[in-house]
């Protein structure tokens, strides 16, 4: 039995999507960001930090989305979605997994400061400006790659792409994608994948964003 603890539109979507790509049956437990369900006693025994994702699989529980992706690829190699030790693409595969989290940390910081600190947010406009610029600078190398090929790795679709299943859908709330044409085409390619469509059907309603774009506020 595989059980994924999930918040719609969060990092755990990376895993939801990958499970669909692998055709693995999983029970999805949904949590809300503001209803206290992540802080409930029952969930604390699964994730002491009260965060998602958490994946119960093979008698163990894994919390970090990057670790879950690696674990699923290594224990289910028949799907060919990882690049395992010895593979010529091992280095770029690991690099993209790391990069996904580097980029996600900027998104998490923007989410927190724009969405979870009150309205109006007491966040510093200087920091928000810096973070948005930093996010845009991480999108540039991805844009360059997507001008050359359809997926992150030259050999084709991999779990490195599913790691971006959080990033590429959150980033447009903070950075204008008008200048990232290849990335927009890439997102359309993702949205055309049947496994992605199935994953979105199970994802639930996103509770993060109440408007389509969050500009940097005017400096005081």
């Amino acid at each position: 039995m595989i059980r994924l603890h999930h918040v719609a539109f969060s990092r755990s979507f990376r895993i939801l999507w990958l499970l669909e790509e692998m055709g693995l049956e999983a029970e999805i437990r949904h949590y809300g960001l503001t209803d206290g369900s992540l802080r409930a006693e029952e969930y604390r025994s699964i994730s002491p930090a009260g965060r998602v994702p958490a994946l119960e699989i093979d008698g163990i529980t894994i919390h970090e989305s990057g670790a879950i992706v690696e674990y699923l690829c290594e224990t289910r190699p028949e799907h060919g979605l990882g690049r395992l030790p010895g593979d010529p693409e091992r280095v770029p595969f690991l690099e993209w997994l790391g990069f996904a989290e580097t980029q996600a940390s900027i998104l998490a910081s923007l989410n927190m400061q724009h969405l979870f600190m009150g309205d109006p947010s007491p966040a510093s406009p200087a920091v928000l400006r810096l973070e948005a610029a930093r996010l845009a600078s991480t999108l540039k190398p991805m844009e360059a790659v997507m001008k050359k090929r359809d997926w992150l790795l030259p050999s084709g679709f991999s779990a490195a792409d599913t790691m971006m299943g959080f990033n590429l859908f959150s980033a447009p709330y903070f950075v204008d994608f008008a200048r990232f044409g290849a990335l927009r085409a890439h997102i359309a390619r993702i949205e055309a994948r049947p496994a992605y469509v199935r994953a979105r059907e199970k994802d639930g309603v996103q509770q993060f964003y109440s408007k389509p774009f969050y500009p940097v506020p005017e400096e005081a």
């Binding site: 163990i60 970090e64 990057g66 670790a67 790391g98």
Partner: peptide, 12 residues
């Protein structure tokens, strides 16, 4: 292996 991976990513 699994714990090692989880901690490696938790470092971030």
């Amino acid at each position: 292996r699994m714990e090692w991976l989880d901690w490696l990513h938790y470092a971030e």
